[in-house]
Nucleic acid binder design. Structure first.
Lengths: 333, 333
DNA sequence: CTGAAAGCGCTTACAG
DNA sequence: CTGAAAGCGCTTACAG
C-alpha cells in the first residue's frame, strides 16, 4: 500500500540496502547517490516504517504510561510532564487507563509488553510490590509514590502530611479530621500516617470517627461534608488527601454557610494549578509534579539501558500556606 | 531475547505455523495440540509481538492523538474519553503534545504515520484545513472544532456563545466584554462570532476595546483583569473563551474587591468539572465532552474502514446558569 | 562504494 | 490436521 524502500530502490535502480543506507546517512555511500535517493524519497512521499525498523533493531522507542484516570489535574499534569520528557529523549508514549482497577492495570502492562515498549510507568499503581513477583519477562516498570518498590519516584508524602498537620496544630487546632482516598493507595497510607504521627507527637487522641475514606474527587469531597459536620464536637480543621477533595469539600461547606477558615480550616495536597485561584485560595502541600515526571522517565531510561543499581527516589514537598487555614476558634481549643 | 513462536515450536516439536495457528485458535488444529501449545506458551511466559503481527497484517490497531497541552481539564477529559472509546474498540492510543505550535503538530502527525497508526485525532489543530492539502499518504485525520474540515466533530460554538451572550443581554447587560483565546483557534473565532452576532442583533456597538485576546489559561484570565477594569465606562459583564479564563479572571476580580455578579457578571465555556464547585459557581456553556470523544473515535473508525461519505458533526451545547451572572447594575444600563 | 543474503517475529495462502 | 515457503519492511554483517 504505502511506499517502501523497495519501491525507491527500483526507481533509483539500486538495491534496497543502498536505499536504507543512503536514508540513514551511512558514511560509505556516495554523496551523489544519497542526494538522488533522498530526493526520490521525498518525491514519492516516503515515510519509513518504524514498525519494521523496530522489529530488527529490537527497539520501539516507546514507553507505556498507565494512568488511573485523568480527571485529576495533578495526574494530567504528571502525564504531560512525562510525555514532554519522553519526547525529548526520543520516546513516544502509549497511554492507557486503569480506572483504579488492579486487573485492568495488569492487563495494560501486558498490552504494553505485547507492543514491545521499552519501559512502563504506572501512575497510582493498585498493586505496587506485586510487580516484583512478575517482572521476569516484562520490560522495566517504574512506579509513583510507592517508596517500597525499588524502581519508584515518590514525593515525601509522610513529611508533607506532617507539615500540613503541624501547621494546623500550630494554629491552635486540636480536633483535626482527615479525609483520605482509597485505602489501597500507597500515597493515601503515607499521608494518613503523617497525620497520625503528628497527633501522637502532641498526645492528641487518634479518633477513628475523624478519619474519612473517600476517592480523591470533587464529588468525594462534597460528599464528605455531611458526615464531617455531624461529628461532635466538631473538628476545627480538616486535612484532605488532595486538592480535588479539598475543593469539593470547600464548596459543600460554602453552601452550608460554614465559613473557611473562620469556622473550619482546610488543607489540601498537590497544589494543582487552580488551587491558588480558588477563593479563598487553598492552603496545600505542593508536589514537585513536573520534577516527578522527569525523574520517572530518567529512571526508566536508566533501567532500559541496563543500569541496575538504582535507588527509589523521594522528592520533597512544600507547604504552601494560603487562605483556607487560620487560627482555631477560641471556644474550640 | 524474549520467547518467540519458534522457541515454542521447538519445545512442542511442531512447526512455527502450527504454533501460530494454535494460539490464534485456528479451526483446523487438533484440540490436543492447541491445549499443549497454549500450556507451553503460558509456561514459557510468551507474549506475542504485536509488532511483528502488525507488520504482516498491516494493522497496528493504534491511533494517534495530538493534544495542544493538557493543563486544561476540558482537554484532558476529552483525551480520556477518546482513550476509553478507543480501548473499547481495540485501539491503543499514542499521545503527543503540540504546545500550540503548528510545526510540532505536523511533526507529530508524521511521527504517528511513521509508526503506522491507523488514524489520527488532532485536538485544537493550528492548521485545520491544511490537512486537506497533504492527506495523500497520511492515515485518516479527524479534527475537533473545525467544522469546515470534512472529518471533524465540533460543538456548536457559535450557538453556545450566542446563548451565553443572550443570557447576559436578557439580564440587562449592555456593555459586554469578550475575553478570547488565540486567534488561530477556530473555536475562538466561532465563539467570538457568536458574541458579535448577538451584539449586532440588538444594535449594540461592537467595540474593539471590549475584546481581549488571551491564551485560555488561568494565568491568562488573571492577566486580563487589569485591562478589563481600565475600560471606561466599565463593562458590566464578560463572556470568556473558556472556564479556565473565567476562573482566572474571577480570582483576580475577587482580589481587587470587584463583586461577582453584583459588579460584574462572568460567563465561561466548557463546564469543566470544578466550574460548578467554584464559589460562586460558574455560569458557563457546557460542551458535550464525553460525547465528542466518542464521536471522534467513531468517525475515525469509519474512515479507517473506508467509509468515505461522512459529514462533519456538530454537537449542541447547553447554557448552564449558575452564580456568576446576575442583573446588570442599575446605573450601568 | 554497493549488493545479496539473512533475519527480526509473526501470518497465511498453498500443498499434502 | 500440519508443514514449508513466502512475505510484511526494514537493517546489517559479509563480500566484493
Amino acid at each position: 500500500m504505502g511506499v517502501s524502500i523497495k519501491d525507491i530502490a527500483e526507481r533509483a535502480d539500486v538495491s534496497p540496502s543502498t536505499v536504507s543506507r543512503a536514508l540513514s546517512d551511512h558514511p560509505r555511500i556516495s554523496e551523489e547517490t544519497k542526494r538522488q535517493i533522498r530526493q526520490l524519497a521525498k518525491e514519492m512521499g516516503y515515510t519509513p516504517s518504524l514498525l519494521a525498523r523496530s522489529l530488527v533493531t529490537q527497539d520501539t522507542a516507546t514507553i507505556g504510561v498507565v494512568i488511573t484516570e485523568a480527571s485529576d489535574p495533578y495526574l494530567s499534569d504528571l502525564v504531560m510532564s512525562i510525555e514532554k520528557t519522553a519526547q525529548t529523549h526520543g520516546y513516544s508514549v502509549l497511554l492507557r487507563s486503569s480506572y483504579f482497577d488492579a486487573a485492568r492495570e495488569v492487563e495494560s502492562v501486558y498490552a504494553f509488553h505485547g507492543r514491545r515498549v521499552r519501559g512502563i510507568i504506572v501512575i497510582g499503581s493498585q498493586i505496587a510490590q506485586g510487580y516484583l513477583e512478575m517482572s521476569e519477562r516484562l520490560p522495566p516498570i517504574t512506579l509513583t509514590n510507592s517508596p517500597a518498590y525499588p524502581y519508584s519516584v515518590s514525593c515525601d508524602n509522610v513529611t508533607g502530611a506532617r507539615e500540613a498537620v503541624e501547621h494546623l496544630f500550630n494554629l491552635g487546632h486540636r480536633r483535626i479530621a482527615f479525609v483520605g482516598s482509597r485505602r489501597s493507595y500507597s500515597s493515601n497510607q503515607a499521608r494518613m500516617r503523617g497525620y497520625w504521627e503528628v497527633l501522637l507527637d502532641h498526645n492528641l487522641p487518634v479518633e477513628s470517627d475523624l478519619v474519612f475514606e473517600q476517592d480523591g474527587t470533587l464529588r468525594g469531597g462534597r460528599a464528605v461534608a455531611e458526615d464531617l459536620l455531624s461529628c461532635k464536637p466538631l473538628p476545627t480543621a480538616v486535612f484532605c488527601f488532595n486538592d480535588m477533595t479539598a475543593i469539593g469539600l470547600l464548596n459543600a461547606l460554602y453552601e452550608r454557610g460554614v465559613r473557611v477558615p473562620e469556622d473550619l480550616s482546610v488543607v489540601g495536597f498537590d497544589d494543582v494549578d487552580f488551587a491558588a485561584h480558588f477563593s479563598p485560595p487553598l492552603t496545600t502541600v505542593r508536589q514537585p509534579t513536573d520534577m516527578m515526571g522527569r525523574r520517572l522517565v530518567h529512571l526508566l531510561q536508566d533501567l532500559i539501558e541496563g543500569e541496575d543499581d538504582v535507588e527509589p527516589e523521594m522528592l520533597p514537598t512544600e507547604l504552601v500556606v494560603r487562605g483556607t487555614t487560620g487560627p482555631a476558634r477560641r471556644g474550640a481549643r
